[in-house]
């Protein structure tokens, strides 16, 4: 949530490391060839550790990110204030001014096709999003800490004016 830059940095570093490592392993003309058996036996020996490393990183990333999942938690809905959002080709109807620093829940649906309810903060970064699907109401829990004007952009292709489908609300 608002972490696009962080993700981009992680990506850049990881991608650069992967590219360098693989180019290094390719060993462009630099050293004597080795017999395949030698490379394979070394490779297989290393692979065990590599497997467990990748496995551990996968499980750890999962465990570390679960607490930050954006889904509504059981019970949280009861005392939060609800705001209804109805998406329709090609605009959003949001009810009221949103209070700052308290948990709110957007009840998001659509009247026609699938849309995406994307909330962009006063600084232009995405702060939250949820799909708007006809026949369903998606509950998006949010707590806004910054007052100002928030822009809504459609984040699911919905027809010819998809790119122009915008809305907004105030947080005070």
């Amino acid at each position: 949530m608002g972490n696009g830059n962080l993700v981009f940095e992680i990506f850049s570093v990881a991608a650069a490391l992967a590219i360098i490592a693989m180019l290094f392993l390719a060993n462009y003309r630099s050293r004597e060839p080795l017999a395949q058996e030698v490379v394979t036996s070394r490779g297989y020996a290393l692979r065990r550790y590599w497997f467990w490393l990748v496995f551990a990183v996968a499980v750890a990333s999962f465990a570390l990110t679960v607490p930050y999942f954006p889904y509504p938690r059981a019970g949280a809905s009861a005392n939060a204030k609800h705001f209804s959002v109805v998406a329709q080709q090609y605009d959003f109807a949001v009810s009221g001014v949103i209070p700052r620093d308290v948990p709110v829940i957007f009840d998001v649906t659509s009247k026609d096709v699938n849309h995406g309810f994307g909330i962009y903060g006063p600084n232009g970064a995405i702060v939250g999003q949820v799909q708007a699907m006809p026949g369903y109401v998606n509950h998006l829990p949010m707590t806004f800490t910054v007052a100002g004007h928030y822009t809504i952009r459609c984040l699911e292709y919905c027809g010819i004016a998809h790119a122009a489908m915008q809305g907004g609300f105030e947080v005070r």
Binding site: G2, I19, G118, I126, G128, L155
Partner: peptide, 22 residues
């Protein structure tokens, strides 16, 4: 591998909030 790294980050749900359909 590089595309895969991009995919894994996007498949991380808290990051997906920022990246989904961008």
């Amino acid at each position: 591998v590089v595309g895969g790294i991009g995919a894994l980050l996007d498949a991380t749900i808290p990051a997906n909030v920022d990246l989904h359909n961008t």
